[in-house]
Amino acid sequence: LERRLSPETVEAYERDTRQFLHFLTGHCGGPPGISEIADLRPADLRGFLAARRNAGGGARTLGRGLAGIRSLLRFLEKRGLANAAGAAALRAPRQPKSLPKPLTASDAKQVVAVEGQLAEEPWIAARNAAVLTLLYGSGLRISEALGLSGADLATETDTVLRITGKGGKTRLVPVLPVASRAVAEYRRLCP
């Protein structure tokens, strides 16, 4: 709540912290107490990252794991229970420089075409087409598209959506006519 992290980030940090404490149990020869955590050195953190790498963790996973540990140590440092300097001194693994590959225009049309949907119910196909059209045409994140309510696109004449996204930030996104038509078709077929 203090840092306004998404529920998914909180869940990932919790999982990473649990894995770190499990590692420390073996590393320290027993369940770690606050004194073992307070005495952590960069070598201990590197050992954890090496163990995660050997278990198949990639650079992004290791970086997120280190961020979760740093977050825990900063939390403990604010309460006078640990020193976070060792974690801060450790550099995160180098991240690969790759970008997601967008769909081609023809592939996107095929994905959102009702004929291309394998759904038993026509309204499900219309829903999927509307969501995918909003994602592709308005640049929404999946969580933003799924969080829309009926009042957000009340009429086919709405050309702009006010979206509250990551970090509680609000932005205006355009709604293309094709997206408005897809939403209207979904509304028409929705039981």
Rank of each mutant, 00 (worst) to 15 (best):
I163R: 06
F48N: 13
T157Y: 15
N54P: 01
A145W: 01
Y186Q: 03
R70E: 02
R52M: 14
E115V: 15
R70P: 07
R127H: 15
V10N: 03
A59R: 06
D152Y: 06
L21G: 01
T164P: 03
A105G: 12
A89P: 02
D152L: 06
H27L: 06
D39M: 01
N83C: 05
G56D: 15
A125N: 05
L140E: 05
A12D: 00
L21C: 04
L161E: 09
P122M: 08
L76Q: 04
P100G: 03
A125C: 05
L45V: 02
L24M: 06
E77K: 01
L73P: 06
R74N: 12
A130R: 08
A108R: 04
L21S: 01
G165R: 08
I34V: 10
R91H: 11
V131R: 02
A130Q: 07
L62W: 10
G150D: 09
F75Y: 14
T170V: 14
L62R: 12
G86Q: 03
L72P: 07
L24T: 07
L189G: 00
K101T: 14
K166R: 08
L189M: 02
L45E: 00
A182S: 09
D44P: 06
V10K: 09
R70W: 02
T9P: 15
V114A: 05
E77L: 03
V160E: 13
V173I: 11
A125R: 13
A130W: 15
Q19P: 01
E144D: 02
T104E: 11
S138R: 04
S6N: 07
V178L: 15
P96V: 07
K109S: 14
R74D: 06
S149D: 12
T61A: 11
S138Y: 10
A87L: 11
G33Y: 09
L134V: 09
N128I: 01
R3P: 00
F20I: 04
A130I: 09
Q95C: 09
P42Q: 13
A50S: 08
V111L: 11
G65N: 14
L49I: 08
R79D: 11
P177N: 01
